[in-house]
Design a protein around this nucleic acid. Structure first.
Lengths: 170, 170
DNA sequence: TTGGAATGTCAACAACGCTGACATAAACTC
DNA sequence: GAGTTTATGTCAGCGTTGTTGACATTCCAA
């Protein structure tokens, strides 16, 4: 399958020759892997009558405690109406606390409560178990490649959000 | 970052030492990358009043022409009612053709029409452009690692579906 | 001939995106 | 100080895509 490398014969960039077929396999790998990636937390969320949107909110509030609603909106890439619906249920259920800003009183700063942190741990642990197993299966060099390709696949603004998060909570 | 390897000090498995923090970064990378991954086709689909479900159906019918509804159901992991709604619009719009099986007349075999293939090309080309760029950015070794981790992250049955597809359309 | 598999279809519902409109409070600007 | 902008919340309505449950049809297989 990859024994003959036609690209090597050409003078152009020597790095990669990618057939549509190879790219298509990468596309399918993303599709199937993402399903696995979300499967474990989804099972827990369903029991609690929550969805993925709740998980995402909990994840990023945990990741950046005290973040504002606007900030979260930008990271999640949804409308305030959509986020508000999710946040309201989380606040009503006592998983998230919303504090009025001290500097700018229009802002609400979001924090996980004790119960919120407990759920976050439960959800992310389920996800980490799978991730840890996948990393172990694939080996250390594969992990670095995995991260490199994913970063390159992000939109520029999402890459910025990602690296900012990555570097603040080093 | 990977200069010190605490795990090496321990007698256990020498392969990887993974902090929760590193795993968390992998989780976020998946989240942000998947957004980028779907962004380009989503824009095209919106113009046509289609959604991601239509894209997925078109993709896998193109990938395995003549596949049955039940087969597609298993690959997509949705209910027949959900898939049927999508298939009906695609058939009505003349993008997909459904042929009654010759061996088993209960089965419907699905094919893309000329128009269906045209849309498939348009959608997958948009996705391949991004994938190609990401692969090029990350380099060849990274690509292999990327695929390895993704495969390890799939559920077992999805991995089988994936490798079967991969090997039939070599 | 009967059971079950494959398919289609109807109805109802839920999660979670979206837009648009409007209200409020606070901050900023001139 | 008046006017504008910003951050947030909320209401109403809609669309896609997932779900369950029920029921009809066709037709293979034992």
């Amino acid at each position: 399958m990859s024994d003959t490398r036609p690209a090597q014969a050409f003078g152009g960039e020597s790095l990669l020759f990618l057939t549509d077929e190879q790219l298509r396999q990468g596309i399918e790998a993303m599709f199937f892997a993402y399903r696995g990636f979300t499967a474990d937390p989804d099972r827990i969320l369903t029991q609690l009558a929550y969805g993925r949107a709740h998980h995402r909110a909990i994840h990023f509030i945990n990741r950046a405690p005290g973040t504002t609603v606007n900030n979260l909106l930008a990271i999640l890439g949804v409308t305030k109406q959509s986020l508000n619906r999710v946040l309201r249920t989380l606040i009503d259920d006592g998983l998230v606390e919303s504090r009025v800003g001290t500097v700018d009183k229009r802002e609400r700063h979001l924090f996980l409560t004790e119960a919120g942190r407990a759920l976050e741990t439960r959800l992310s642990e389920a996800q980490r178990v799978r991730m840890r197993a996948a990393y172990k299966d694939a080996g250390p060099e594969a992990v670095s490649g995995f991260r490199k390709v994913l970063e390159a696949m992000m939109d520029a603004d999402m890459r910025h959000a990602y690296t900012k998060l990555r570097d603040t909570t080093s």
